Simulated assay, not measured.
Amino acid sequence: MGIKILISPSRYVQGPGALKFLGEQIKHLGEKAFVIGGKTAISQTQEIIKKSLEDQNISFKFETFRGECCDSEINRLKEIAVSEKCDVVISVGGGKVIDTGKAISALLKLPIVIVPTIAATDAPCSALSVIYTEDGVFDRYFILAKNPDLVLLDTEIIAKAPARFLVSGMGDALATWFEANSCYQSASKNIPGGYSTVTALKLARLCYELLIEYGEQAKIAVEKGVVTPAVEKIIEANTLLSGIGFESSGLAAAHSVHDGFTILEETHKVYHGEKVAFGTLVHLVLEDHPWAEIKEVLDFCVKVGLPVTLSQIGVENPTPEKIMEVAKKTCEPGMMIHNMPFPVTPEMVYNAIFAADALGTKYLNEISK
């Protein structure tokens, strides 16, 4: 048996109004903050962040993120951080700006603080950045030396975001348990290069159980813009439990299928977690899960509004040629699908994609009668 490794953020802070405490939480990390975020995220948070930092005598430089976690944007922002002599990076917003900030901090060897304004992915807690091309096609994983120094989630801000973001986060988190268990069965190494601890595996399972129990309640609450105990649980499941679960137990088919679909431009308008949800169904088919387990996932997806068919992820014309290209991308060397407990070929993925689509279509037809 090899060594087991569990990694996690140094500090995790979550709750209503948490952003007001940002300065207090980072005062030991640096004296000048480089704050990056998209236009919406910055407009929502800038005044609160400014006051919180000023109260702790921390200076700052705000810069708008241009929307894609790609090499050119990482390098552009990195140069600004250097020229401004910043000594701590703060990423505010969703998954792509979070991954960009993490990459900048790794390249400059600076502390990184993550302030999600949505709970749409498990990116905030991880020591991993997903790098895309400028056109939004998956390029590579950038494995980082350490996890974020602080992850701070203001649940009041997250609850006021469109419910689709929280639901997308549930789709990303939905894969966590199934991929973690596949990696455990195959004795595959996790993201930091060790084997899963029992703790990480149990956190991945807890993530799934919270989604099934509280997902629909949480969606209904955030549609009204309010924070409830169910919303708090789902934000934690989407962010902390899924983050530790995937990273310290491993990824497998579901996320690789997502990465495969990024070659189809028609899927780019669909969120990461939405594609991962469909990838989870493909994963279950590929691994020959019992119908009861597949149906539980279908029930959950439909209740919260996650896609279960190809057309729902934007693929209206799934020609055999197109899906085979997705399957080939999914199975490229180095892709996480090779962590499955058996060898996987493009032909197997091709078959599983069409089978998952057929199951989802049949399920939707049945419940609409």
Rank of each mutant, 00 (worst) to 15 (best):
V326L: 06
T319H: 07
E274G: 07
D288F: 02
H268W: 12
P341Y: 07
K328N: 01
E347V: 02
K328D: 00
L310D: 11
P318N: 09
F278E: 06
L286I: 02
V315N: 08
P341A: 07
E316P: 00
I313E: 07
E266S: 10
V282P: 04
V270T: 15
I323S: 02
I294N: 06
H268F: 10
M336Y: 10
V297Q: 13
Y271R: 14
E325T: 02
G279Q: 09
P343E: 14
E266T: 08
V302N: 12
C301R: 06
H272C: 12
P341N: 13
T330Q: 13
T309N: 01
K322P: 00
D299R: 08
P333F: 05
M336K: 15
L286V: 04
E274Q: 13
P307V: 04
I313N: 09
G279P: 09
C301I: 08
V344D: 01
T267M: 09
K295Y: 13
P318W: 09
L286A: 05
K275T: 05
H283Q: 14
N317G: 00
A327S: 13
L298V: 14
G279D: 11
G273C: 11
G273D: 12
E332N: 10
G334Q: 02
K322L: 15
V270M: 09
H289N: 11
M335Y: 07
K322G: 00
M336E: 14
M336A: 15
P341K: 10
P320T: 12
L284Q: 15
K328E: 12
T319A: 08
N317W: 01
L306F: 09
G305Y: 02
T319V: 10
H283T: 03
I323A: 06
L310C: 13
E296C: 06
V326W: 07
C301L: 03
D299E: 14
D288G: 03
L284K: 14
T330P: 12
E316H: 13
P318E: 06
G305I: 07
E325G: 11
V326I: 13
L310N: 09
I337C: 04
T330Y: 11
E321Y: 00
V276R: 04
D288Y: 03
K303M: 13
E296Q: 15
L298S: 06
M336W: 08
F278T: 05
Y350I: 02
E321A: 07
T309Q: 01
K275D: 02
M336F: 12
C331K: 08
V297P: 09
T309Y: 01
T309P: 00
